[in-house]
Amino acid sequence: MRLMTATEASRGFSSVLDEAEHGETIVITRDGRRVAEIRPASTGNADALRAFARDWGAEHGSDPEGARAAPAELDALDDVLTDDSDRWNE
């Protein structure tokens, strides 16, 4: 983790982003107080998970039997959760 003043961050914002892209967390300070953090973006796939849950719910409704996910649905959910693609670069 690196500390940087707001002035330094604004003057070298491109390099701040480069550092974050390479895994560094930068804490931005103003008048000696911590005011923000810039860190690598999550590679989570929340949009795909929400779409999966919405589609699965539409297929199974409120049926108690449908509330229990079948192995195929669990496999699909596992595929979504373990997707390592970098959506930021798409």
Rank of each mutant, 00 (worst) to 15 (best):
M1Q: 12
M1S: 14
M1D: 12
M1H: 10
R2I: 13
R2H: 06
R2Y: 03
L3I: 08
L3M: 13
L3C: 08
M4V: 11
M4L: 14
M4H: 08
T5L: 08
A6F: 10
A6R: 13
A6D: 13
A6L: 15
E8C: 01
A9G: 04
A9Y: 03
S10C: 07
S10A: 15
F13Y: 10
S15Y: 04
S15E: 11
V16W: 01
V16P: 02
V16L: 07
L17N: 03
D18H: 08
D18P: 01
D18I: 03
D18E: 14
A20N: 01
H22A: 15
H22C: 10
H22R: 14
H22E: 13
H22K: 13
G23W: 07
E24K: 09
T25M: 12
T25F: 03
I26F: 02
I26A: 06
V27M: 14
V27Q: 14
V27Y: 12
I28F: 03
I28W: 07
T29H: 09
D31P: 00
V35Y: 00
V35F: 02
A36H: 05
I38D: 03
I38G: 03
R39W: 00
P40W: 03
P40A: 14
A41G: 06
A41Q: 08
A41H: 04
A41I: 04
S42T: 14
S42A: 15
T43M: 09
T43F: 02
G44F: 01
N45T: 11
D47Q: 12
D47T: 12
A48W: 00
A48H: 07
L49N: 05
L49Y: 10
A51W: 02
A51G: 06
A51E: 14
F52D: 00
D55W: 02
D55S: 10
H60C: 07
H60L: 05
G61M: 02
G61F: 03
S62N: 11
D63R: 06
D63W: 01
P64G: 02
P64A: 06
E65Q: 11
A67H: 10
A67I: 04
R68S: 08
R68W: 11
R68T: 11
A69L: 12
A70M: 05
A70L: 07
P71G: 00
P71D: 04
A72N: 00
A72H: 01
L74H: 05
A76Y: 04
A76S: 06
L77N: 01
D79Q: 14
D79I: 00
V80F: 05
V80Y: 00
L81G: 04
L81K: 04
T82D: 05
T82L: 10
D84W: 07
D84P: 05
S85M: 02
R87I: 09
W88M: 01
N89V: 15
N89R: 15
E90L: 09
